[in-house]
Design a protein around this nucleic acid. Structure first.
Lengths: 237, 237
DNA sequence: CGAAACCTTGATATACTTCAAGTTGAGTGG
DNA sequence: CCACTCAACTTGAAGTATATCAAGGTTTCG
């Protein structure tokens, strides 16, 4: 593990700007450095497991991480995908609970770990930080509600279309007349974002392709007609 | 509306103890009184509508309120049921968004309204209050994740069993060898908690009844065998 | 008392899951 | 660098849980 350790200063971190740490001053950033450790992770490595005790927060500098819960039959349900600038594990710290989900690296990543105590100290010394976190939590809660309603009321087809739109917004790389969804997701992963069986995802993707809404480049997906895809997702009604 | 106005002091409020306001001192409670208004609501009255701008927070003193989102086809999805001591609308205030859901009274209620400004002032003057809110938000987020995973991975039968257990925990009145779920929920409401069709709820309830897990007293439900019901909900795996 | 809202049961339709088998692709070691 | 292997992907066929539609019964409330 020690060879995977690298040095990264928060002050110079390109991901800090739009992160929760955006409001910290020099002194506070220095405090963070003290006990921080930055580590490189390969795809498929797991940061933490559901049900274990959180020791600190993870700060994604590079790469992508899936956050998921396991059902009793061992099926994954992805609840979130973290990208550079995102934090992992602060929910469990702040609610003083065990992790409610597991986190596994999707694409090779650089992730910093900040011990619980340092993170909590930051809270008491910076009220702007408090506000940032509360706002973030409230927004996330709104998104979760949306998701619950979608799960209950939309068909798998609509949810898949919606997930593709969402992935496009976040990971899309615009090209000629199309947008590549640039994230290393297996069909299994996609199925567990949508909440369905892998085979169903594959069948629906080939439907969308047949209708000219998307194209498939290897396992990656290109969105050709975002507006029509959004219509499939029932974004209008 | 003016005849429905009543006087209630926060200091003497029986619901305050376990609420977010539990940590406020006398002075702060007095501040709250100033612009507070307490109103009686009848069943089916709506407190606020999804998509509108929040003007303050609602504090439930008595009664029950359902919080729900509407699909494009006008179908309800209940995301939460608020009971005495619960707050409504603070999520939208804190995230500075419009309401993400609507709130309608299920059982005749007494609800106090506190203007946004007073609520926010409370935040800046009491850091314990901050902590309470953050903790509450984080716990709620954990519950929401659980719900999303359930929606994706469990059958309607399992979800209904789970919802009955949950309702029993919160609204149960213990009797001889059984627990009455004491809340005025229509079959429609129950269906929109579970996320299914009304007819399906009715059929599954009669299944559970046939199996001796529950009994039906009018539209109210008595739980006879909570452990077996929990097994139906796949709480063990 | 009458109308409206709610509840219940039955019959039918279908979206989705599951199981099975074959194909492709990525990574590894000889 | 090729071949081997295992995992991921894909297609097909069959089964099922649940939605939808329809119609009759019951409660509630003005």
């Amino acid at each position: 593990m020690s060879d995977k350790r690298i040095n990264l200063s928060c002050a110079a971190c390109g991901s800090r700007g739009d992160s929760l740490f955006g409001c910290l001053n020099h002194e506070q950033l220095d405090d963070l450095e003290e006990n921080k450790s930055c580590i490189m992770y390969k795809r498929a490595q797991t940061l933490f497991y559901e049900g274990t005790r959180p020791m600190g927060i993870y700060c994604v500098n590079a790469g992508k991480v899936k956050v998921f819960k396991l059902s009793s039959q061992g099926k994954e349900q992805i609840v979130r995908i973290a990208k550079p600038g995102d934090f992992l594990g602060y929910r469990a710290i702040l609610s003083e609970e065990f992790y409610s989900a597991s986190a596994t690296v999707l694409e090779d990543a650089v992730i910093c770990f900040i011990p619980k105590e340092d993170f909590l100290k930051m809270l008491t010394t910076n009220s702007q930080f408090y506000q940032n976190i509360i706002k973030k939590l409230c927004k996330e809660l709104g998104v979760m509600r949306e998701k619950i309603a979608d799960m209950a009321q939309k068909s798998v087809r609509e949810r898949l279309a919606g997930s593709l739109i969402m992935l496009k917004e976040t990971y899309g790389i615009d090209g000629n007349e199309s947008t590549l969804i640039d994230i290393n997701l297996s069909r299994d992963d996609l199925a567990s974002i949508v909440g369905t069986a892998t085979e169903t995802v594959i069948r629906l993707l080939s439907d969308f392709k047949k209708d000219g809404l998307i194209s498939l480049e290897g396992k990656k997906i290109k969105v050709l007609k975002p507006r029509e895809l959004a219509k499939e997702a029932d974004f209008y009604g």
